[in-house]
C-alpha cells in the first residue's frame, strides 16, 4: 500500500506538517510526548508563556464548528507567544462561494506561518498541505472521519502519565468507530507506540469494513471487549446517527454499549476511562463513571494544550532548520 510519508516529514526527518499518525516513526511520537512533558508545567506558572514562536502567525482555519479543539489550539499558540487568528470559514468565505484553494491563497498573501485546519471532508488537511507555500506548516485539527492526530497524541500522553509502559497494555475503544477520526488516529498511535492489544467494540453497524487490517481485534459484545483492559476509550455518539438505519435509539445503545459502573468492573481494577468529549451522559457513558475516580476526561483536556504546544513547536522548528 502506498502511504504519505514525505508529505509530513522534511528532508532532515523533521516534522513539516502534522496530518496523520499513520506512517510516523515511534521515535517521533515519543519526542512529541517528551516535548509535551516539558511544556506541561507552563500552565501552572504565573506567566504562562514561553517565547518560542514569537513573531509567528498561526491561523486556526475551522471549516467545521469546534470549541474544545479550537480553544486549546489557541491557548497553545498563545503560550508559545505566537499571534493567533481564528477563522470560522463555515460562516464566511465558503458560504460566498470561495473555493478552499482561493481561501488558502488569500491567507498565504497575509504571510501566515502555520495553519491549524479542521474540515468536514476526509483528506482536506492533506489537500491543503499539498497546496500551500513551502514555508507554511499544516496541523490537522480533524478531517472528516480520517484523522485527528493531536487528539490521539494527547490521549497517548494521558495514558503514559498513568500507565508508563505501552508495551504491556490492553486498550478498548468503544462506540462509533465508523464515523470517528479519533478512533482511527488513536489506533495508529497506540499500535506505533507498541500497545500489543487494541480492541474496537461496537455494534456491527458502527464498525467499518476491514478495520482488522489496522491491527485491532473487533468485539461486538462490550462485556467481552472490556475484560481485563487497562484503558477504556469511549467515543462520542453523534445524535444524528440515531435517525438513520445505524441505531434504533439512544436508550438501546446505552443498554448495549453504555459504560456503567458494573461494566467498568470488568476492566482491570486500575483501568482509566477516557473520552475525547463532549460527552453524552446517559448515552455512551454513565455520569457515575464520567465523574468517578477512574475518569481522566478532564486531564485529557488540559494535556491537550501541552501536546498541541509540542506539535506546534516541532513543526515550526522544522521550518527554522
Amino acid at each position: 500500500m502506498k502511504r504519505e510519508r514525505n508529505l509530513q516529514i522534511n528532508a532532515h526527518g523533521r516534522l513539516q506538517h502534522f496530518l496523520t499518525i499513520e506512517g510516523l516513526p515511534r521515535e517521533l511520537l515519543i519526542e512529541i510526548l517528551d516535548r509535551a512533558e516539558g511544556f506541561a508545567g507552563i500552565g501552572g506558572r504565573a506567566v504562562k508563556k514561553v517565547p518560542l514562536l514569537r513573531g509567528k502567525t498561526i491561523v486556526n482555519l475551522f471549516f467545521e464548528p469546534s470549541t474544545r479543539t479550537r480553544t486549546t489550539f489557541e491557548l497553545a499558540a498563545k503560550r508559545l507567544s505566537a499571534d493567533v487568528l481564528n477563522l470560522n470559514i463555515e460562516s464566511s468565505s465558503a458560504k460566498k462561494g470561495e473555493t478552499l484553494l482561493d481561501t488558502l491563497r488569500n491567507l498565504e498573501a497575509m504571510h501566515c506561518d502555520m495553519f491549524v485546519v479542521r474540515h468536514h471532508l476526509s483528506g482536506a488537511a492533506h489537500f491543503i498541505a499539498r497546496n500551500v507555500a513551502p514555508h507554511i506548516s499544516v496541523i490537522n485539527g480533524g478531517d472528516g472521519r480520517h484523522a485527528h492526530p493531536t487528539q490521539a497524541m494527547l490521549d497517548a500522553y494521558t495514558i503514559r502519565r498513568h500507565k508508563r509502559d505501552f508495551m504491556r497494555l490492553k486498550v478498548a475503544i468503544v462506540g462509533d468507530v465508523l464515523h470517528s477520526r479519533v478512533a482511527r488516529s488513536e489506533i495508529h498511535a497506540l499500535k506505533t507506540l507498541g500497545v500489543p492489544e487494541v480492541r474496537v467494540v461496537g455494534p456491527r453497524t458502527l464498525i467499518p469494513a476491514g478495520v482488522e487490517e489496522m491491527g485491532v481485534s473487533v468485539c461486538h459484545d462490550i462485556e467481552t471487549g472490556l475484560k481485563n483492559v487497562d484503558v477504556i476509550v469511549m467515543l462520542r455518539l453523534q445524535t444524528e446517527r440515531m435517525r438513520g438505519a445505524l441505531l434504533p435509539s439512544a436508550a438501546e445503545y446505552f443498554r448495549l454499549y453504555g459504560l456503567t459502573p458494573a461494566r467498568l468492573k470488568l476492566a482491570r481494577s486500575d483501568a482509566i476511562v477516557m473520552h475525547p468529549g463532549p460527552i453524552n451522559r446517559g448515552v455512551e457513558i454513565d455520569s457515575q463513571v464520567a465523574d468517578g475516580g477512574r475518569s481522566v476526561i478532564l486531564q485529557q483536556v488540559s494535556h491537550g494544550i501541552a501536546v498541541r504546544m509540542a506539535v506546534m513547536a516541532m513543526t515550526a522548528g522544522s521550518q527554522a532548520g
Partner: peptide, 15 residues
C-alpha cells in the same frame, strides 16, 4: 470502494 482502505482513509465507501 468500501474496504480496508476506505476505512483507513475515513472516506465513505461504496460496498
Amino acid at each position: 470502494h468500501e474496504g480496508p482502505i476506505s476505512t483507513r482513509l475515513g472516506l465513505p465507501g461504496i460496498p
